[in-house]
Design a protein around this nucleic acid. Sequence first.
DNA 1: AAATGCTAATGACAAATGTCACTGGCTTAA
DNA 2: TTAAGCCAGTGACATTTGTCATTAGCATTT
Lengths: 198, 198
Amino acid sequence: MKILLAEDQAMIRTALASLLRLEADFQVTEAADGNTALKLLNHQAFDLLLSDIEMPGCSGIELAQYVQQHQLPTKVVIITTFGRAGYVKRALDAGVGGFLLKDAPVEQLVQAIGQVMQGKKVVDTELLLNSLGEQDPLTEKERQALRLAAEGKSTGDIAAALYIAEGTARNYLSEAISKLHAANRIDAARIARQKGWL
Amino acid sequence: MKILLAEDQAMIRTALASLLRLEADFQVTEAADGNTALKLLNHQAFDLLLSDIEMPGCSGIELAQYVQQHQLPTKVVIITTFGRAGYVKRALDAGVGGFLLKDAPVEQLVQAIGQVMQGKKVVDTELLLNSLGEQDPLTEKERQALRLAAEGKSTGDIAAALYIAEGTARNYLSEAISKLHAANRIDAARIARQKGWL
DNA sequence: AAATGCTAATGACAAATGTCACTGGCTTAA
DNA sequence: TTAAGCCAGTGACATTTGTCATTAGCATTT
């Protein structure tokens, strides 16, 4: 079985590739970033893409979206450090077959690969529950205002950028702060980003 | 050579341990968190401790400090995702022999282990320069005020907690914001934490 | 058709923040 | 001994933020 492993940390990538070759006799090709992975996906046919999320170039979720949009015959399994609700949701929307945390034992990864190849979905139940329980409470306007605030822009700048009044911008930010139980706008943005909502 | 590998992500730990056994015929014992690592260090003699920093229980730096304080005959090599200046400094102060990022290739890790066993220090030059270049600009009072602000406390609460006037608290926070080029106090705290200064 | 709920939008105003000019004490340099 | 620099500390005040009450439009429910 041909696997493409996309992981930017060299040490981790080599170790995982090596282990997968040992554990299950997979043919593993390595990609050090999202763009390299993308090129490889276009050059060869892989049975499965095993990808981290946060990498230089394309993220793992963007790779999954690409596979889905181009209807490549490649299953996708995500392995990541943080099981953010936003990530889980977007990954599933992008048609990934598996979503695992790096906390999981290797046996579980190997088993997940097998099940995904058989057409099953493998996502940690707890992650799913977290994902469902943590619906993104922000409206699109609140999100836009928050993003700009996180970039250090003042209320006036935010108002100008979104073509709204200052009072409106303040209200959007205030709503976001309240929904996320944050101390202020920057804190609200941090929380939203942490949950994958920004 | 007996190595203790402390890494909380099961998949990563198994993969690294497996690779180290293959690559260089090391005897690797695994610890899933800092406390387990501590117990093992007290039960057996290891030639080297290879540790992540951020783990449940003791951090990798705390483990290094323990080894130093108890003068255990165990060399320490840190491998971590983020090369924060604060981490590098504290790790070196704790007498670690090596400090590597997970970005580094496995060959570099194996080589570093060898050199550290010969009594050499192995730290990425760029990390060292970053660490030196990024001196903690905060005074102790500014740090205390920032920490409390990061916990969501108001200026009044901070003043009360530190037995200072509100104006003083505001000034400390303002100084910190200015030094770190932050948008506000919460942002300043985020930056300080990111750099290992908080 | 009317009521209800939600989002987008606004401005008044109170509260909080952040800047600034300042003082005092201590350490270091001239 | 004096000057300079830094940290700890303070309060006045301008600026910004955040809350709140409000309106309008649209979709959904009754």
